[in-house]
Lab assay of single mutants.
Amino acid sequence: MDVFMKGLSKAKEGVVAAAEKTKQGVAEAAGKTKEGVLYVGSKTKEGVVHGVATVAEKTKEQVTNVGGAVVTGVTAVAQKTVEGAGSIAAATGFVKKDQLGKNEEGAPQEGILEDMPVDPDNEAYEMPSEEGYQDYEPEA
């Protein structure tokens, strides 16, 4: 019985440690998101679009440190934060509304985080759909 109880105690310690790591990862992701939003706020009209992409990228980098179902929630929060940063930029006159959601080359930025393969159960990952990809044929 002692062996059984000791095993359960060790398992509990492992769960607590994993929860603490997840909590730490979420806190880091939130900190990076805040950094990115402050970065966007300090940019001029020309830099705002690039700044919004930076927020998304920093958040995406930190999301990889967070495991399990938390990833889905962090990704949703990050996307809403990026959308909010863009709205703030438009409201303050840093950028025109028609410039939001495009990178410096004018290509749409939507789907940055949505296409990231995420499995809350950590069982399997699927690649994003290939609808947006084109076949590449090298020139002879």
Rank of each mutant, 00 (worst) to 15 (best):
F4R: 00
F4S: 00
M5H: 00
G7P: 01
K10M: 14
A11D: 00
A11V: 15
K12M: 15
V15Y: 02
V15I: 14
V15T: 01
V16N: 04
A17D: 02
A17C: 06
A17F: 02
A19Q: 01
K21F: 12
K21H: 03
K21Y: 15
K21S: 07
T22S: 06
T22V: 09
G25M: 12
G25N: 04
V26N: 00
E28A: 07
A29C: 10
A29T: 05
K34H: 04
E35G: 04
E35R: 10
G36T: 15
G36C: 11
V37D: 00
L38G: 02
Y39H: 05
V40D: 00
G41Y: 11
G41M: 13
K43P: 00
T44S: 11
T44G: 04
V49L: 11
H50I: 03
H50P: 01
G51W: 15
G51E: 01
V52W: 15
V52E: 00
V52M: 14
V52R: 01
V55P: 01
A56P: 01
A56K: 09
A56G: 04
A56F: 15
E57F: 05
K58N: 05
K58A: 13
K60F: 06
E61F: 02
Q62V: 03
Q62M: 06
V63I: 10
T64Y: 13
N65I: 13
N65V: 11
G68S: 04
V70R: 01
V70W: 15
V70Q: 01
V71K: 06
V74I: 03
V74P: 01
T75F: 11
K80D: 02
K80M: 09
T81F: 14
E83H: 07
G84E: 06
G84M: 15
G86Y: 14
I88P: 02
A89P: 03
A89G: 07
T92A: 11
K96M: 14
D98G: 13
L100H: 03
G101F: 13
G101H: 10
E105K: 02
E105V: 08
G106W: 13
P108G: 02
P108I: 05
P108M: 10
E110P: 12
E110H: 03
E110C: 07
L113S: 12
L113W: 10
L113Y: 09
L113K: 07
M116E: 13
M116I: 08
P117Y: 10
V118E: 12
D119Q: 13
D121H: 11
A124R: 08
M127E: 14
E130H: 10
E130F: 09
G132H: 06
Y133R: 02
Y133G: 10
Q134I: 11
D135W: 07
D135C: 06
E137H: 08
E137Y: 10
E137L: 08
E137I: 04
P138A: 10
